[in-house]
């Protein structure tokens, strides 16, 4: 499944593509919302691994403007719940992810991102 937490960890790895290769841009994304159990400790544990700006920009691109542009220093429960929703309950089932640098297209099918490259595209 491509949830935004996973998307936040994916970057382009095509040959020669080493800068500006993150975050990948969604195109034609088919979105499903599925409830997940809220676990504030889990979200707090993930926070240091998240690129905040990439997450906010990606969520905005999908029409979700619930997160503040700057990462707040203090995380209250309400914000953790918002993050929970954005990171874990938004599923991209079909569509594409496009590298902002080299425009390589990574398709998403049945919720699975296909990051495989052909032999000549591998670094």
């Amino acid at each position: 499944m491509v949830r935004l937490i996973t998307h936040n960890l994916l970057s382009c790895h095509a040959k020669g593509c080493t800068t500006n290769n993150f975050p990948l841009q969604f195109k034609d994304a088919e979105i499903e919302h599925r409830d997940a159990e809220f676990n504030p400790e889990f979200i707090r544990g993930l926070l240091p691994k998240i690129e905040w700006k990439a997450l906010v920009d990606t969520a905005k691109g999908l029409g979700d403007t619930s997160l503040p542009d700057e990462q707040p220093e203090m995380m209250d429960d309400e914000l953790l719940k918002t993050l929970h929703h954005v990171l874990l309950e938004v599923h991209i089932e079909e569509g594409q992810m496009i590298c902002p640098n080299c425009n390589h297209v990574y398709p998403i099918s049945n919720g699975i991102p296909n990051m495989l490259l052909a032999e000549h595209e591998i670094a």
Binding site: M1, L10, H13, E51, N110, I112
Partner: peptide
């Protein structure tokens, strides 16, 4: 990858499946 996701669902564990070679596309982050 599809079987992985289905097995997660069957066992009530959310498995995030990515089709790639080893850890490519995830390694940097």
């Amino acid at each position: 990858c599809q079987c992985t996701v289905a097995t997660g669902r069957q066992n009530k564990v959310c498995l995030e499946s990515v089709s790639t070679y080893l850890d490519r596309s995830l390694h940097t982050r």
